[in-house]
Design a binder for these strands. Structure first.
Lengths: 155, 155
DNA sequence: ACAGGACATCAAGTGGACTTGAGGTCAAGC
DNA sequence: GCTTGACCTCAAGTCCACTTGATGTCCTGT
């Protein structure tokens, strides 16, 4: 137990469940910060644990580290987020999370349908569509792989 | 319009929305098969389109191509899956899909809670826990991190 | 006969999120 | 003083799902 309230990379790694290499990597990306001792070892404030938790939450939501970095850039780099800050960023992530859930549920519904009816006339089966990848609406040709259009006349 | 019922890689690519390179890659992995013309060009049966659709569905569920290959190995490589076969593999994928959805919903519930109460005493906030486990997004080695155990006594 | 495009192979590149390895430093205990 | 282990940096490796590039062949239309 250290007397001061700064944590070594090993301690942070242990408590966060992340590898030291991951922590150094996050620091390179600017996701977290650290101070150094006279001997050049990293020292972290306890708040880094919360920050890491926020990062992990965002990863669960499906955000990339780049996107997370952008969100984190809007709050104090050294402190744990305030209530208002946390509200703001978690609210910002909600739509992405909702979309992900909706996409998966739609997929499941189709799986159910296909199981139930044994439907193999997949022309109209939306299992075939990439309803993942939120933000795909227009009838635009060749956006991000607009898989299986009407040209699919098999069967 | 071809008289025979075999498809060129270009046709399959167009109809499936996949790039020819992806089709060749899938063939390398054994996910699909093709015959060759005298001039060494690939020729696909129409059933390959269904097979590709199944592959895509599985990817949406979050399975890796290896896992998909394992599932596809249990059915006829050349034919479209029968009703029973489709039932079997789609049913097998259900649990994975359910788990993914449940994990995301749990995450959302926690996000809600945190927004609602402004909770920053994250000790008990399961946002911090990796209820993901299976089907987590993002590649890279080192899965199954047991993030943030009770050692996390911040705040 | 020949141009053009679709197709072939094989090697290497891409990107995200890290890990691993080599080689050196710091600090505590014996 | 010496060993040990945690730590440092920087370069390179890994995994996945492909794509890109180089180089060469097949085939259809004019």
């Amino acid at each position: 137990m250290k007397a001061d309230d700064l944590l070594s990379i090993g301690e942070v790694a242990h408590r966060s469940g992340l590898a030291p290499s991951a922590l150094r990597y996050y620091e390179d990306l600017g996701l977290i910060t650290s101070t150094r001792t006279a001997g050049d070892r990293r020292r972290y404030r306890r708040a880094v644990l919360r920050r890491l938790a926020v990062i992990r939450s965002a990863q669960n939501v499906g955000l990339s580290l780049d996107e997370i970095a952008a969100a984190l850039a809007t709050l104090h780099p050294e402190e744990a987020p305030t209530k208002r800050e946390w509200h703001r960023i978690s609210a910002a992530w909600r739509p992405a999370l909702d979309a992900r859930i909706a996409a998966l549920q739609a997929l499941r519904a189709n799986l159910d349908t296909c199981i139930g009816c044994g439907c193999l006339s997949m022309r109209q089966c939306s299992l075939y569509n990439p309803q993942d990848e939120l933000g795909e609406t227009g009838p635009g040709p060749r956006r991000k792989v607009a898989v299986l259009d009407p040209a699919y006349d098999d069967d």
